[in-house]
């Protein structure tokens, strides 16, 4: 097998100072800016009126009781469960009990739910706008330059991705253009942001996208959810709990633990 000669391309060292470093610095600064923008734009949680707060807290109370029943004795658990189930089923804790059974209001017309959607929109915007700007900035100024060589070989499929804007047929796909350095920066700068801004920063797009996939905390009481239905479901969940205490058989365990 004939040895393929290694391609060498002589490049102006000025390429590093005028393309590589500007892109990297701009990417890092954009991440820092995005972090602080999201910190500044985060709206403080709105004060709820007392009834609505009670509705939420009572539901959480039921969930906590269901999750931690093992620390209660049989009697106190039964008392709590009975009280909660009765209240849930009669709708005592509802925000406006006379609206039971009606369809929930349209989330678009409710001003408080508009707030939540605005927050989501703001986050989306904070992600999309800088990306579009930087992308077009790189395309306008730096397209068509080959700046670096990857340290590992790639198949020919990557050529169109890495060498966008460089129309050279025989060039090794290891050579990469400025736009692919931008993509590498998007994926790899997370550790730099961890170092600069602490671990729960909002700088990286990747982390934000992960967060959107996951379940959202506010969804439980979100608009369009009928609290009456939630209460009834929670009552049912409580009713089927089979109680056992963590202190059952504790004497046995204590005696086993004592070495003679």
């Amino acid at each position: 097998m004939a040895q393929v000669p290694v391609q060498t391309i002589h490049r102006d060292p000025q390429l590093f100072y005028w393309i590589l470093f500007p892109i990297t610095i701009v990417m890092i600064l954009t991440g820092v800016l995005r972090h602080y923008a999201s910190v500044l734009m985060a709206s403080a949680p709105k004060r709820l009126e007392q009834k609505a707060m009670r509705e939420q807290r009572r539901l959480i109370h039921g969930m906590n009781l269901r999750g931690n029943f093992h620390v209660l004795s049989q009697r106190s658990f039964a008392t709590r469960r009975d009280a909660l189930i009765t209240a849930y089923e009669s709708g005592t804790y509802l925000k406006d009990p006379e609206r039971r059974g009606q369809a929930p209001p349209n989330p678009m017309s409710d001003p408080s739910s508009m707030e939540g959607m605005m927050g989501m929109m703001k986050n989306q915007m904070a992600m999309i706008i800088p990306n579009t700007l930087i992308m077009s900035w790189i395309n306008a100024f730096f397209s068509g330059y080959v700046i670096m060589k990857l340290p590992f070989p790639l198949t020919i499929k990557f050529k169109s991705m890495l060498q966008a804007g460089v129309a050279t047929k025989d060039m090794d796909p290891r050579w990469m253009s400025s736009i692919s350095w931008y993509f590498l920066c998007i994926f790899g700068l997370q550790s730099v942001f961890n170092f600069l801004l602490g671990s729960d920063n909002a700088a990286s797009q990747m982390a934000q996208q992960m967060g959107q996939m996951g379940p959202q905390a506010g969804q439980m009481f979100g608009p369009g959810v009928d609290p009456d239905k939630q209460f009834l479901a929670e009552a049912e969940n409580l009713a089927v709990v089979e109680h056992h205490s963590v202190l059952d058989g504790v004497e046995q365990r204590l005696l086993e633990g004592i070495k003679v």
């Binding site: 590093f16 590589l20 670096m148 060589k149 340290p151 590498l184 994926f187 790899g188 700068l189 997370q190």
Partner: peptide
Amino acid sequence: GLAGFILTWTLFYG
């Protein structure tokens, strides 16, 4: 760490 590794590897190799 892989993405960060590849980024700095490429940068310093270059």
